[in-house]
């Protein structure tokens, strides 16, 4: 029996049973934009950046199992337009001032914005008022940039077995919380050695006193656009930063 495959933008892409569209694409070195997906964790399906059209229906590539013969549209003006709008939503929902952000150049949100040629936030800024948590000796939490992808939640719960992070609130008031009555990271058992310390795709969970170490021009997405880094994205694992 031949291996089953999907038709991704007209290209046959093989997959093995149980793989999602995202898994199959990544294995074939094809880029589908994504933020909440990480090969090491259970799919989440919340950012919707990976929205593709499978057999004519809009679906999330990171959660939908591939099926033999499925026709998937990925790199199209319509989808990229929708993805750009999603990025703009994420930008205005938080406070993203890249010039003063330590993650700049290594940030997936920013890299995707470049990839999808997002030139402006388009919508009115929400400018939410979110306090920074600097209580922890090693780590700073800047919630202003949280995109609620739950990667830290999943890493801390499923890998570190600490459940340091969780989400609270609902709708536009949804926000990240930490596992302490005081609400302070210092009062949790979080440590820089945790997996959860190294999965944030944006600039929320930051090591103190080590920012801006790599010069502009040499940072991850200065070197090469994110769309060309599929192999590295697919190989992300426990010991590597997102």
């Amino acid at each position: 029996m031949t291996q089953p495959s999907i038709l991704l933008d007209g290209l046959p892409v093989p997959f093995v049973d149980g793989q999602t569209i995202m898994d199959a694409a990544m294995a074939a070195d094809i880029f589908i934009p994504h933020l909440c997906h990480h090969p090491e964790f259970k799919p989440q399906g919340s950012c919707k950046l990976c929205t593709v059209k499978a057999n004519g229906r809009y679906v999330s590539a990171c959660t939908l199992p591939a099926r033999d013969g499925m026709e998937v549209e990925n790199n199209s003006p319509d989808l990229n337009d929708k993805r750009r709008t999603l990025l703009q939503m994420l930008f205005v929902e938080g406070n993203h001032f890249c010039p003063s952000c330590e993650k700049s150049g290594n940030c997936m949100l920013q890299a995707l914005a470049y990839e999808l040629e997002m030139l402006s936030p388009h919508f009115d800024q929400f400018y939410p008022n979110r306090a920074v948590d600097a209580s922890h000796p090693e780590v700073l939490l800047d919630f202003n940039r949280c995109i609620l992808c739950e990667l830290c939640v999943r890493a801390s719960r499923d890998v570190d077995r600490k459940s340091v992070f969780s989400l609270s609130g609902r709708g536009i008031d949804k926000h990240l919380i930490v596992n302490a009555e005081s609400g302070r990271l210092a009062d949790t058992d979080f440590s820089w050695a945790d997996k959860a310390a190294h999965v944030c795709p944006v600039g929320v969970i930051l090591k103190k006193r080590s920012g801006f170490a790599v010069p502009i021009g040499k940072r991850r997405y200065d070197v090469e656009p994110i769309g060309m880094q599929v192999e590295r994205l697919a190989a992300r694992s426990a010991d590597e930063e997102s």
């Binding site: 399906g45 950046l49 205005v92 609620l148 609130g169 609902r170 709708g171 536009i172 008031d173 949804k174």
Partner: peptide, 10 residues
Amino acid sequence: SCGFCTPCRV
């Protein structure tokens, strides 16, 4: 809105 997914939340 439960706030889970970006399009509906924002």
